[in-house]
C-alpha cells in the first residue's frame, strides 16, 4: 500500500508545472524515504531530478517500493480539478496498474477522487557524480527567470561568466547583443533578495536559452535558485521545495564547434 498526503494541492501543482514542459511522462519511484523522479527531456540534453522526502508529507506510507509511470499531461488534467487549498492524497495498491488522487476541501464538504492508469516506462537512470563546483551562485528565483526571459529574445545561446565580483549573462543574435551583470550583494538584512557567489575559480559556459526557460517554470516553488557550474560539466539549477525536498535540473553546456 502506498499513500502520500499533502495538506495543500498547490505544492503538487507547482511541482508538476516545473516538470511537464520538459517531460511527457515520468516514473515516480516511491520508497520509505520518499518520492523520486529522474528523467531526461525528449532530446536528452537536460535531466530533471526531483526528490520529495517522506517526512515532508503530512502522512506517508510506503509498504513496498514501487515505481509509478505517469503521463504528465493526464496528471495535469487531474490536478487542475483540485483547488489550491485542497488536501491531496496519492494512493496506490502494491503492484497496482492505477494510481488514485483524492482531493478533500478544507471543510471536508467535497471529496473527489480521480483514478489514472499507470504506464510501464522503460526509463534510463543516469548516475550523477558528486562534484565540487568551481562556482555556486545563489540569487532570487524571480530575478533569474527575468534575466533568462529577457535575454532569450535576442539569441538561442546564453554565455554565463562567473567571477568573484559577479555573474554576467550574455546573448548575441541577429538583432545585436545583450548583457546582464549581477554583482554580489552584501545585503544581510534581506537575504532573500541577495546575490551570493562562492567561487573557487572563474567559469564561462554557454547554454541553450530554451532549456533555461523551461527550468524557470519551477520559480513558484522557491524564492531562491542556486546555479552550480564547473568547466565542461553540466550546469545544475536547483530550487528547494520548502520542508519537502528539491528539484534539480542538469543542462549539458553548448561547446564551440
Amino acid at each position: 500500500m502506498f499513500e502520500a498526503r499533502l495538506t495543500s494541492a498547490a505544492t503538487l501543482k507547482k511541482v508538476l508545472e516545473a516538470v511537464k514542459e520538459l517531460l511527457n511522462e515520468a516514473s515516480f519511484d516511491c520508497s520509505d524515504s520518499g518520492i523520486q523522479l529522474q528523467a531526461m527531456d525528449n532530446s536528452h540534453v537536460s535531466l530533471v531530478s526531483l526528490t520529495l522526502r517522506s517526512d515532508g508529507f503530512d502522512k506517508y506510507r510506503c509498504d513496498r517500493s514501487l515505481t509509478m509511470g505517469m503521463n504528465l499531461a493526464s496528471m495535469s488534467k487531474i490536478l487542475k480539478c483540485a483547488n489550491n487549498d485542497d488536501t491531496v492524497t496519492i494512493k496506490a495498491q502494491d503492484d497496482a496498474d492505477t494510481v488514485t488522487f483524492v482531493f478533500e476541501s478544507k471543510k471536508q464538504e467535497k471529496i473527489s477522487d480521480y483514478e489514472m492508469k499507470l504506464m510501464n516506462l522503460d526509463q534510463e537512470h543516469l548516475g550523477i557524480p558528486e562534484t565540487d563546483f568551481s562556482c555556486v551562485i545563489r540569487m532570487p528565483s524571480v530575478e533569474f527567470a527575468r534575466i533568462v526571459r529577457d535575454l532569450a529574445q535576442f539569441g538561442e545561446t546564453v554565455l554565463i561568466c562567473c567571477t568573484k565580483e559577479g555573474v554576467k549573462f550574455s546573448v548575441s543574435g541577429d538583432v545585436g547583443s545583450a548583457n546582464v551583470k549581477l554583482a554580489q550583494t552584501n545585503n544581510f538584512d534581506k537575504e532573500e533578495e541577495s546575490v551570493s557567489i562562492e567561487m573557487q575559480e572563474p567559469v564561462s559556459l554557454s547554454f541553450a536559452c530554451q532549456y533555461l526557460i523551461s527550468f524557470t517554470k519551477a520559480t513558484p516553488l522557491s524564492p531562491r535558485v542556486q546555479l552550480s557550474m564547473s568547466s565542461n560539466v553540466p550546469l545544475v539549477v536547483e530550487y528547494e521545495i520548502a520542508e519537502l525536498g528539491y528539484i534539480r535540473y542538469y543542462l549539458a553546456p553548448k561547446i564551440e564547434d
Partner: peptide, 14 residues
C-alpha cells in the same frame, strides 16, 4: 558556432 551535446556525454547509465 556552438554544438549541443547530450547529457549522456556527462552521466553514465546506471
Amino acid at each position: 558556432k556552438h554544438i549541443q551535446k547530450s547529457i549522456r556525454n556527462y552521466f553514465k547509465t546506471k
